[in-house]
C-alpha cells in the first residue's frame, strides 16, 4: 500500500478528521494564548527595566536562563513549581508564556532604547505623564523591532506545543504519539504539515498586523549602508 493510499484511508475516516480538527484548535490555543501573554509580560518587564535600570541586568540574566532550559524539562517542572496537576493544559501555557517572555525581553529593551531621546523629551515637554507616554509614544515606536522578535516567538511556540504530547497535552503533537504507537505515517505527516501551515499563516498575519500598526514605517527592507556611487 502506497503512502498516498494510506493517507486517503486515514483522512477518509470521520473520527480521524474530527481528531485532526480538535487537535488543531487545541494547538492554536496552546501556542497563541502564551504568545499574547508573553508579549504583555515582556513589555511589562521592559517598562520595569527602563524605569529601574538596576532590574535590567537581572531580568536579562533570568530571561537567558529560562530560555536555556530544555522544553520537556520545563513542561514537567511547572506542576511542582505552581502546584498544578501533571496533565493540565495550563502547564504548557505557562511554560510557553515564560519562553515567549524570555525571548522578547531583550528585543523589547533594545526597541525601547532605540526610541530617539528627542521624541521622548518632546512628549514630556508637551505634558505626557510617564505611563501614558510609554503606552502612546514609546511603545508604538518600538513595534518594528519588537515585531521581529514576536515572529520568532510565534514560530517557536507553534513548533514546541507538540512536545506537550509527552505529558498528555500537545495539540497536533498527539498525532505524532498516535502515529508512533500505531506505526502509521499518515497522522505524523498530517501533523507536521499542519504545524508548518499554522506557523506560516500566523507569520503572515503578524507581518500584516505589523504593517497596519506602523503606517509610518512602510519600508520593510532593512536599510543597509551602501557604497556611495
Amino acid at each position: 500500500m502506497s503512502f498516498f493510499d494510506e493517507l486517503g484511508q486515514y483522512l477518509g475516516s470521520a473520527s480521524n478528521r474530527e481528531q485532526i480538527v480538535d487537535t488543531l484548535a487545541e494547538h492554536c490555543y496552546l501556542a497563541l494564548l502564551p504568545l499574547v501573554l508573553g508579549i504583555v509580560l515582556a513589555i511589562a518587564i521592559g517598562w520595569l527595566g527602563r524605569a529601574w535600570p538596576r532590574a535590567r541586568g537581572v531580568t536579562l540574566v533570568l530571561a537567558n536562563l529560562v530560555y536555556t532550559i530544555p522544553s520537556l524539562a520545563l513542561f514537567v517542572m511547572i506542576p511542582s513549581l505552581i502546584g498544578t496537576k501533571m496533565l493540565d493544559s495550563i502547564n504548557v501555557v505557562v511554560a510557553l508564556t515564560l519562553y515567549t517572555a524570555a525571548l522578547l525581553v531583550r528585543p523589547v529593551l533594545d526597541a525601547l532604547d532605540a526610541v530617539p531621546p528627542a521624541v521622548i523629551a518632546s512628549a514630556t515637554a508637551m505634558g505626557y505623564r510617564p505611563a501614558r507616554r510609554f503606552l502612546t509614544v514609546e511603545l508604538p515606536l518600538a513595534v518594528p523591532v519588537l515585531a521581529a522578535g514576536v515572529r520568532v516567538a510565534s514560530v517557536s511556540n507553534i513548533s514546541l506545543v507538540s512536545v506537550g504530547a509527552l505529558i498528555g497535552v500537545g495539540g497536533l503533537g498527539v498525532l505524532f504519539t498516535d502515529g508512533f504507537q500505531r506505526e502509521y505515517f499518515s497522522p505524523i505527516v498530517v501533523g507536521i504539515v499542519l504545524t508548518l501551515l499554522l506557523a506560516l499563516v500566523v507569520d503572515l498575519l503578524l507581518v500584516l498586523s505589523r504593517r497596519l500598526l506602523t503606517p509610518w514605517d512602510r519600508t520593510t527592507a532593512p536599510v543597509r549602508t551602501e557604497v556611495a556611487v
Binding site: 507553534i158 504530547a165 503533537g173 502509521y184 505524523i188
Partner: peptide, 18 residues
C-alpha cells in the same frame, strides 16, 4: 532555515523512526 525551525521536534523524530 525558517521552515526547518517551524518543524515540530516530536513529529520529525517519530517520522524518522518509522
Amino acid at each position: 532555515g525558517n521552515v526547518i525551525r517551524a518543524l515540530p521536534t516530536l513529529g520529525l523524530v517519530t517520522f524518522l523512526f518509522l
